[in-house]
Amino acid sequence: MSKAQFLAENLREGETYAGLLLGKDGAPDIHLILLAGVAMDVSWDAAKKFAEAAGGELPTRREQALLFANLKEEFEPRWYWSDEQHASDPSYAWGQYFYDGFQFYGHRSDEGRARAVRRLILQ
């Protein structure tokens, strides 16, 4: 199947193909798709609700790195929430700056931006 055919069959209006993310530790590979829309000035909990309402999820930290590498121009040069909480303190969650790719963690009540993704799992 050609890339054009794949995109025609799998992308919905307003979506952008981000690329292939290789699975780790036996996890399947996925095609990552960036959904349309952005939430601004939202807490982590509100960002997760935004992504769900958009039909997707917040991206993982690995997925954010792929988005930065392949679709940086689709983001304002600000920070965006990931779906990952900090391992040692669940009152914090990870985010990423889209002007330099730096990942950090902030308090879940902090206000940031959010974009949603959906995943096509390769069998």
Score class of each variant (00 low, 15 high):
residue 34 L to R: 00
residue 53 A to R: 13
residue 73 E to C: 00
residue 100 D to I: 05
residue 115 R to Q: 11
residue 13 E to C: 03
residue 18 A to K: 06
residue 82 S to F: 02
residue 112 G to I: 04
residue 83 D to A: 10
residue 44 W to Y: 12
residue 98 F to M: 11
residue 122 L to M: 14
residue 16 T to E: 11
residue 1 M to I: 12
residue 114 A to W: 09
residue 50 F to S: 06
residue 80 Y to E: 04
residue 80 Y to W: 03
residue 84 E to S: 12
residue 106 G to Q: 11
residue 99 Y to K: 09
residue 115 R to V: 14
residue 12 R to W: 04
residue 22 L to N: 06
residue 11 L to D: 08
residue 119 R to D: 06
residue 112 G to N: 09
residue 3 K to V: 11
residue 75 F to Q: 05
residue 50 F to A: 06
residue 64 Q to K: 02
residue 19 G to Q: 06
residue 7 L to D: 02
residue 108 R to Q: 13
residue 113 R to M: 12
residue 17 Y to H: 09
residue 117 V to I: 15
residue 2 S to C: 06
residue 107 H to V: 10
residue 117 V to T: 09
residue 26 G to Q: 02
residue 78 R to F: 12
residue 119 R to Y: 06
residue 61 R to F: 05
residue 32 L to T: 01
residue 32 L to A: 06
residue 32 L to C: 03
residue 99 Y to D: 15
residue 123 Q to A: 15
residue 81 W to S: 01
residue 40 M to C: 12
residue 104 F to W: 11
residue 112 G to D: 06
residue 106 G to W: 15
residue 70 N to W: 00
residue 55 G to A: 08
residue 94 W to Q: 01
residue 76 E to N: 05
residue 103 Q to W: 07
residue 29 D to S: 11
residue 101 G to T: 02
residue 4 A to D: 13
residue 84 E to Q: 10
residue 8 A to F: 07
residue 58 L to F: 03
residue 80 Y to F: 13
residue 86 H to N: 10
residue 15 E to A: 09
residue 79 W to R: 04
residue 122 L to A: 11
residue 3 K to P: 00
residue 23 G to S: 09
residue 23 G to R: 04
residue 88 S to Q: 14
residue 118 R to I: 08
residue 75 F to E: 07
residue 67 L to C: 07
residue 90 P to K: 14
residue 24 K to V: 13
residue 11 L to F: 13
residue 70 N to L: 02
residue 97 Y to Q: 08
residue 86 H to D: 11
residue 20 L to A: 05
residue 17 Y to S: 04
residue 67 L to R: 06
residue 40 M to W: 01
residue 5 Q to C: 07
residue 3 K to L: 15
residue 59 P to S: 09
residue 66 L to V: 03
residue 48 K to T: 07
residue 36 A to D: 15
residue 73 E to D: 14
